[in-house]
């Protein structure tokens, strides 16, 4: 589990924890379809269970997402990774890192955990084949000492999956 990278464990700002409390409440009344969030005592790290959508390559499979929030969330993006074993997907590395622009360059403070989850499920659902990214081995080797995917300089080349 080299991938469960150590997030910068700075305590959440007041704005961040207020906003996360709002998100928890909203999630509890209106959770996104296909996701289960087991509420634990840590507001700063959410473990979310994803179930593959019916009629897709991942139907019925379940995976776990780990969401870590930075001190200045939502001005800064959360770190979102799959806890290995990660789903086989052309944009998901075996260490759980996800190549998805909204998690990095295209993050917006108007996005929420819920909206990110829906984007990830959408990405899974549109997969044409269960395969790893072509550069999987090289990339995983490079982040061996638990590097955060937020430090990766991603190249978002595929707007179809």
């Amino acid at each position: 589990m080299t991938s469960s990278s150590v997030p910068s464990r700075k305590v959440l700002s007041k704005i961040a924890s207020n906003r996360l409390q709002k998100e928890v409440m909203e999630w509890q009344t209106n959770p996104p379809a296909g996701f289960k969030y087991k509420v634990n005592d840590s507001l700063q790290r959410w473990i979310i269970e994803v179930t593959g959508a019916p009629g897709t390559l991942y139907t019925g499979e379940t995976y776990q997402l780990q969401v870590d929030f930075p001190e200045h969330y939502p001005m800064e993006a959360p770190q979102v990774i799959f806890i290995p074993p990660a789903p086989l997907h052309p944009h998901i590395y075996s260490n759980g890192h996800i190549c998805l622009d909204i998690l990095y360059d295209s993050w917006s403070p108007a996005m929420t955990v819920s909206s990110v989850c829906i984007s990830i499920l959408s990405m899974l659902s549109s997969s044409p084949a269960k395969e790893r990214p072509a550069d999987n081995d090289r990339y995983v080797r490079n982040c061996r000492n638990g590097r955060s995917p937020k430090e990766t300089r991603w190249w978002f080349h595929d707007d179809k999956v």
């Binding site: 704005i15 200045h72 001005m75 800064e76 295209s106 917006s108 403070p109 108007a110």
Partner: peptide
Amino acid sequence: SCIKASIQAQKKCPTCR
């Protein structure tokens, strides 16, 4: 305060970019 902080973080609209 939210839009001020947001523009400081990144110079684009949080809703439409």
